[in-house]
Nucleic acid binder design. Structure first.
Lengths: 350, 350
DNA sequence: TTTTAGCACTTAAGGCGGTTGAGTGCTATT
DNA sequence: AATAGCACTCAACCGCCTTAAGTGCTAAAA
């Protein structure tokens, strides 16, 4: 049945079985698996001593190893590999669970949300991290383009593709275009080529260059009606950019896992931070929240130094630094202060 | 000079000075500050015993406290508050540093990047977390609007405001509009009202309703030239959505700070994950990277289970789960598998 | 009255030795 | 080929002790 050589340990069926049971066990409770345990679990009636021989073979093959001499065995990557490739029996999901998932997906609308909730689903179901690459269709179909003139002959182009994704890009043009020129250019493109694959457009353009007509103008009242609707709902949601969160792990007073976890969850949640920044927006100059003052438990051991920044003398936003209460305020305060001023004036020059 | 009452400890100048020195010291090395240390640091020639009395007063006032009976003192939030409000001597930044900052800001172009690099600057200079609220100008000036018809009478509106921000919103209209109707509506709005403050537009609309002319059509060749430029650079950057990263802290084998830190930095960096997902995109069906197989050090103790998902029979993206090598593969694999299928078909139905 | 010296007391932290329990490898036997 | 027996290893835990830092209190000195 199985060929065996005395010089090189054999990976016969029995050994494979033990490997399987060992890995399953290790996955279950995370402890190195010893011979006695394995003997009981395996369902084959063998003494621990025998198991030890087998495990020793497995170790020689690099499929398991021990953290130290008198510990049980732990699977190595190669061990997992074999397990996954040929030993694994997959439990299909319950029909009920599948149903739930289907309903979950059915209830979402636009692609962005779908992707987001797929990621959340993965994370929730597995209690691990879920990740979803944003769809990148092989054939990107062009939907809409828009141009916004910037200073010089730079133009902001906004390209909308079939998947509802919006791509912003700043391009440098050879000559300078006026705003109305750009608008008309966009109209032309949009009317002629929406729905065509991106790669094809260049070819089509040349060929179809002079075929266009325009039959607009009289639907303006419709435009009005829609616009009314849009400007009604202009909710400016607010969002922030965070950097260097992991720096916080350097501080002893924050770096127990619970604390860090709370902090990061708070960052991910966003709403609390947004409230906090909102509060900081009203005051001008540098503002400091120390410990509980922020009002959020996760920041109990943190201070937040903020400053609002102004564009053309209007408060436009807030920026700041989050760190342990024990921070070098004398240094952080001027940094936040000057950054706010520089950011403000940098944004003004646009 | 200073009024004192025997019943309530006094916050005289000397006590304030000690508080200041204590906090400065504590900020420097994070250890509870004892009477002897404080005596040396304070620059006033007093014995530790005297200092102890003062510290005891400060404690009674709630400005400091000891972690345990025989430890030194640590500032409380109120202590920091007083320190920050009236004891702090701020070090202005070196002119050199300011120069560097200015140059840093000068080199960035669009607002989004400015905000991002401001956040990074804050984080780098302070070695803590930087946060910047995205500018929310008091008067949002309207730049550009665009409509994309979706199914039913839902319309995707894309509103661009003066700060270069793009706001997507799906609205429900009363009646159904065709694509060309929508395009014309957008054109009308864009031509007439770009540069006006958002709030004012509704009023202006009614009043200016019938004044519009159109003088387009002959700039089409320009449109062509620009478009050429845009479609040239269509670089579809690729991005992913991550969820439940903090779940990873639940696993003992990952949850030492160094490890978690590396992981989170990798998530934030994005490029590595993107490469990995890219690799997973080519294979179809579920793919598994175990430990070092991923090729990235930060994932040495992690496995990644991925599956590509298809839209209309074309591979559109990848999704997956990241967890410890010791994961319940038999459960995770079908979850990833089915999620990929469901996401694919959910996206197709659009 | 303020400051200081002295003293007894508290506490975290670290080192040391012993014990326990799980597990191993080897050898001789069945 | 499988097993039993045995000596050995090692992490983890426990209790014990010591050390270092610091405290509060009281009584004496300035």
């Amino acid at each position: 049945m199985t060929t065996k050589k005395s010089s090189q340990p054999a990976v016969n069926e029995r050994a494979q079985h033990f490997l399987k049971v060992l890995i399953e066990r290790y996955i279950r409770d995370g402890q190195p698996v010893g011979s006695r345990t394995l003997a009981k679990d395996a369902g084959i009636d063998l003494s621990p001593a025998t198991i030890r021989n087998v495990m020793s073979d497995l170790e020689e093959l690099g499929l398991v190893n021990s953290p130290h001499t008198s510990a049980g065995r732990v699977p190595t990557s190669s061990g997992y590999r074999i397990f996954v490739d040929s030993l694994l029996t997959i439990k299909p999901l319950q029909q009920v669970e599948i149903g739930q998932l289907e309903r979950e997906f059915a209830s979402r609308a636009d692609p962005r949300n779908l992707v987001k909730s797929a990621s959340n689903l993965l994370s929730n179901m597995t209690h691990m991290a879920g990740v979803v690459l944003i769809p990148r269709p092989k054939q990107v179909v062009y939907r809409q383009i828009e141009f916004i003139p910037l200073s010089g002959n730079r133009v902001l182009t906004i390209l909308v593709t079939s998947d509802g994704e919006v791509h912003n890009k700043i391009i440098e043009t050879q000559s300078t275009y006026s705003q109305s020129q750009l608008i008309q250019a966009a109209n032309f493109l949009n009317e002629s080529y929406s729905g065509k694959p991106l790669e094809a457009i260049r070819g089509l353009l040349v060929e179809e260059m002079e075929k266009t007509k325009q039959q607009m103008n009289d639907l303006m009242s419709d435009a009005l009606s829609i616009a009314n609707n849009v400007f009604e709902i202009d909710g400016n949601e607010g969002d922030y950019i965070l950097a260097g969160q992991t720096n916080l792990m350097d501080f002893d007073e924050l770096s127990n896992l619970d604390n860090i976890r709370n902090l990061f969850d708070t960052f991910a949640e966003k709403s609390q931070i947004l409230h906090l920044l909102d509060r900081a927006m009203t005051a001008d100059g540098v503002q400091i929240f120390i410990g509980e003052e922020s009002g959020y438990d996760s920041f109990d051991n943190c201070s937040i130094v903020t400053s609002s920044y102004e564009i053309d003398n209007d408060v436009a936003g807030v920026l700041g630094v989050i760190g342990p209460t024990r921070m070098a305020y004398d240094r952080v305060i001027p940094i936040v202060d000057i950054t706010a001023k520089l950011l403000g004036s940098a944004l003004k020059h646009q």
